[in-house]
Simulated assay, not measured.
Amino acid sequence: MKRLLLTLVLVGTSALAATLPSRAVLSGECCPGTVWTPDSKALLFLDGPPARASTGFYEVAATGGTVTRRFSSVAYFSPRLRWAVRPSTGETTVLERLVDGKRFTLPTYGADVTWNDDETRLAYTRSDTSGNYDRRATRVFVADAFGSPRAVATLYGGGVSGWVDDDTLLLSGKSAPGNRDRDLFTLNLRNGAKKTLRTALGFRGISLSPDGKRVLYTISFDSAARNGLWLQATAGGSPTEINDYGAYRWRDAGRFLLIPLKSAGDAHVLRQYDVKANGWNTLGDLGHQVRQGDWNISPDGKLLSFLSARDGNVRVLTLP
């Protein structure tokens, strides 16, 4: 009840929040799923006929203006745009280093890969293709760029959530197919040490901070003591319950933004949590609602893009 009352109070502040000015940089409902370029200066999106002459990845500046084609081929591109990951038929996936076109292959069976921060190492999973998801074996592999993969773990009903650092993965899943609960844990690839951060029926929205020192996650459909939004250090220790609920994104290593869940048709409110201060402040409302959770923060933490539910345009605002 206490959490419910707090959430109602927080949502109720939307009427008092100033509207954050934004500008439409893409219009015509063309472009869901935009992502920021590493330099925070532009947005990338996949498009093709009839809006564009050919299918590919296109780019528009954060200030709007002319749309240009960035990549003519369709692939999974790494966050720093250093690699193109191109699944082919069968088990083979081709990874191409974009600076020089050099390639190597991995047997990912079409899965994308998860890169470490400097994109010199990667992880991927291969799962059984039949049976209940909770009981399917998922094998975790790691490889250096241009190197051979090696298996490092087997999970059930889980997978890779990210790289804590160059030698440590964040994983979630069950250690045995018959277990009720999953573990959220780190795995050191040098010595095989496993550190369990939390155990619960399931984890959703697992999100590592940019420096890998903290993780946000949501637990639901479990006990009242476990359910909620949580913040925890990846080094271990007790988690902190975040007394609000909604969609969240890291702004930088010490702050994350949250759009509180609400059922009314009012504009979505943007709130900011400071980890060091252990406190909230409301930045304002967006003047729109975000469509289907489609919003992202630029890598430098200064800009926010979102797909407007009102007009289908991609809009950008400068964060306070």
Rank of each mutant, 00 (worst) to 15 (best):
L6T: 13
L6Q: 14
T7H: 14
T13N: 14
T19R: 15
L20K: 01
P21W: 03
R23A: 11
A24F: 02
L26S: 06
G28P: 01
E29Q: 13
C30H: 11
G33E: 01
V35A: 12
W36R: 04
W36L: 03
T37A: 10
D39A: 03
A42I: 07
L44K: 09
L46E: 11
A51W: 11
R52S: 07
T55C: 08
G56M: 04
G56L: 01
Y58F: 12
A61V: 06
V67M: 07
R69S: 11
R69I: 04
S73G: 10
A75V: 07
A75K: 05
Y76S: 12
Y76L: 15
Y76M: 14
S78Y: 05
R80C: 14
W83T: 08
V85T: 10
E91N: 14
V94D: 15
E96Y: 06
E96I: 12
E96L: 09
R97T: 08
L98V: 07
D100I: 02
G101A: 00
K102E: 15
K102C: 13
F104E: 08
T105E: 13
T105A: 10
P107S: 03
P107I: 00
P107H: 00
Y109Q: 12
G110I: 03
A111P: 05
D112Y: 08
W115G: 03
W115S: 06
D117S: 13
A123G: 11
T125C: 00
T129K: 14
G131W: 00
A137D: 00
T138P: 02
T138K: 00
F141I: 07
F141P: 05
V142P: 03
A143S: 08
A145Q: 09
S148C: 01
R150E: 15
A151M: 13
A153G: 07
T154P: 00
G159C: 10
V160I: 10
G162M: 09
T168W: 02
L169Q: 07
L171Y: 09
L184D: 05
L184G: 01
T186I: 07
L187T: 01
N188T: 03
N188L: 09
N188I: 05
R190V: 09
N191T: 06
G192P: 00
A200V: 04
L201S: 11
L201C: 11
G202A: 10
F203H: 08
S209V: 08
G212A: 01
L216S: 03
D222S: 06
A224T: 11
A225W: 03
L229M: 09
T234D: 04
A235N: 12
A235E: 14
E241I: 05
E241H: 01
I242C: 10
N243D: 15
N243M: 13
D244A: 15
Y245M: 15
D252K: 02
R255N: 13
P260K: 07
P260C: 10
K262V: 15
K262I: 10
S263R: 10
D266Q: 10
H268F: 07
L270E: 04
L270I: 02
R271Q: 14
D274K: 01
D285M: 07
H288F: 14
H288I: 06
Q289M: 07
G293L: 11
D300M: 00
L307H: 13
V314P: 00
L317V: 08
